Amino acid sequence: MTGTGSEPVAVAATEPPTPDVSTAPGRPWWRRKRYRFGIVLVLVAGYVYAVNSSWLAGDPGEGPGVLAHRGVAQTFDVAGVGDDTCTAEIIHEPAHGYLENTLPGIRAAFDAGAEVVELDVHITADGQFAVFHDWEVDCRTEGSGTTRDFTMAELKRLDVGHGYTFDGGETFPFRGKGVGMMPSLTEVLAEFPVERLLIHVKSDDPAEGEALAEYLSTVDEKRVENLTVYGGDRPIAALRERMPDLRVMSKEIMTDCLLRYEVMAWTGMVPDACHHTQLHIPEGYAPWLWGWPVRFAERMAEVDTVVVLVAGDGGFSEGFDSADSLDRIPDGFTGLVWTNDVTEIAPLLSGR
Rank of each mutant, 00 (worst) to 15 (best):
T2L: 10
T2H: 14
T4P: 10
V11K: 08
A12V: 05
P17H: 00
A24T: 12
R31A: 13
I39V: 13
V40W: 12
L43G: 13
V48P: 04
Y49A: 14
S54K: 06
G58D: 08
P60E: 11
G61L: 08
G65F: 02
L67P: 00
A73Y: 05
D77F: 10
V78S: 06
G80L: 07
V81A: 03
C86K: 09
C86M: 08
A88F: 03
E93K: 15
G97W: 04
E115C: 04
V117D: 06
A125I: 00
F129M: 11
V137E: 02
T141K: 05
G145V: 04
D149R: 11
M152V: 00
A153N: 12
K156G: 10
K156N: 05
D159E: 02
G161S: 07
G163R: 09
F166R: 01
F172L: 12
R175E: 07
S184K: 13
L189P: 09
P193T: 07
K202A: 05
P206N: 02
P206R: 06
E210W: 02
E214W: 01
D220A: 10
E225H: 13
T228A: 15
V229N: 13
Y230D: 11
P235I: 00
P235K: 06
I236F: 06
R247N: 06
S250R: 09
K251Q: 11
D256P: 00
T267Y: 07
H275S: 11
L279Q: 10
P287V: 15
D304H: 13
T305I: 04
V308T: 15
V310M: 07
G315N: 13
G319F: 11
G319M: 05
D321N: 15
D327W: 01
E344M: 12
I345R: 08
G351E: 14
